[in-house]
Amino acid sequence: MDQRRFVILVADSAGCGALPDAARYGDEGSNTLGHVARALGGISLPNLGRLGLGNVLEVAGVPPDPSPAGFHGKMAERSPGKDTTTGHWEMMGVILEEPLALFPRGFPDDLLRAWLAETGAPGVLGNEVASGTEIIQRLGEEHQRTGKPIVYTSADSVFQVAAHTGTVPLETLYRWCEIARRQLDPLRVARVIARPFVGTPGKYTRTYDRKDFSLPAPGRTVLQDLRDAGVPVVGVGKIPDIYDRQGISEEVHTSGNADGLARTEALLGTLERGLLFVNLVDFDMLYGHRRDVRGYARALSELDAALPRLLARLRPGDVLALTADHGCDPTHAGTDHTREHVPLLVHAGGRGGSLGVRASFSDLGATCAGFFGVPAQVGTSFLPQITAAT
């Protein structure tokens, strides 16, 4: 039996330069990693640099490595959109032809009436495109006074429900979101997100009890093919939520990047074989959307510092790939995701080389499938390029 492991680390939103069609999304010139580094006059990321990050794009403080220890490149997104669900689906072999539903003017009254009738909630506040951290400060006190949940969306395909845990019990919030998920399925809304928060007026903070209720992918993913072939698939962070738990053998909940990295390190000490698929959400949730350049840079440094510990846990034949699902340039206008390439850094035995510009995120899924001897229906595997190193 194959005892090797394939590890995918998704630095959620760590894009590396605008896609050719970025102007259609209002994202021309965006470059999350490049602009974070430039805004601070440079950033020290020696371990990411050793894998070839500086060979992929210009990152102030991370020069190109003349002999990188990793395979390096970047991937373009074929699917329309710039959201978590679309990016992750494409990564695992599901490419969309039509974008998921967006609600830039809020949700229709008839939809909200049906939701309120089934949930029994006393009404809604908000129903607008908003920043999650801003809207709870603005409407949190009224929410606590009336019991009405705060409903909002963004430039992504999401129906988000925020509620104070002292006003709406967590299980009630989850039940309300489960009802919304079922009602929104026909409209192709990607995610319903429970956004619990705590605190007092003017000092509200969101908790890590967030829960995503995702639309099932409209096709089979590599994850399902792997599990059907007997390959364990461990989802860490919000990975199980993103894929509606389809193709996931084991779920590991995390409380932010530091916890996710620690749990990944621990799992590499116990997991015998299979795919370890990790999402590090703080890049996006805490720093990208909040336009916190310094926080984003700090999170990159924390990831860089953790890399040697993760690589030390790998066994001969294991592969670790680091990538992203979209951009969220904190120097760009607005607070939304940005339509970007994503980096592709692969550790495979200590050798390196260029993987070029991949035509689709699905190349990563195809490579992962081929690694375990499972046929992939979509994507071009780069396994032959890294096999000599494993």
Rank of each mutant, 00 (worst) to 15 (best):
L170I: 11
T172V: 15
L173E: 09
Y174I: 10
R175I: 07
R175E: 15
W176R: 12
E178M: 13
I179K: 07
A180V: 08
R181H: 12
R182P: 00
R182E: 07
L187N: 00
A190C: 05
V192M: 02
I193K: 06
A194S: 14
R195E: 03
P196L: 09
G199K: 00
P201G: 11
G202Y: 03
Y204T: 03
T205S: 08
T205V: 08
Y208W: 14
Y208V: 04
Y208Q: 12
Y208M: 09
K211P: 07
D212R: 05
S214I: 05
L215M: 09
P218R: 00
R220D: 03
R220L: 02
T221D: 01
L223R: 06
D225S: 14
L226S: 04
R227C: 06
R227F: 03
A229H: 10
G230A: 03
G230V: 00
P232V: 07
P232N: 04
V234F: 05
K238E: 02
K238W: 06
I239P: 05
P240L: 08
D241M: 02
D241R: 02
D241T: 01
Y243C: 03
G247P: 01
I248R: 05
S249A: 06
S249H: 02
H253P: 13
H253D: 15
N257V: 14
A262P: 03
R263E: 13
G269E: 07
T270D: 09
T270P: 01
L271I: 10
L271W: 07
L271T: 14
E272W: 03
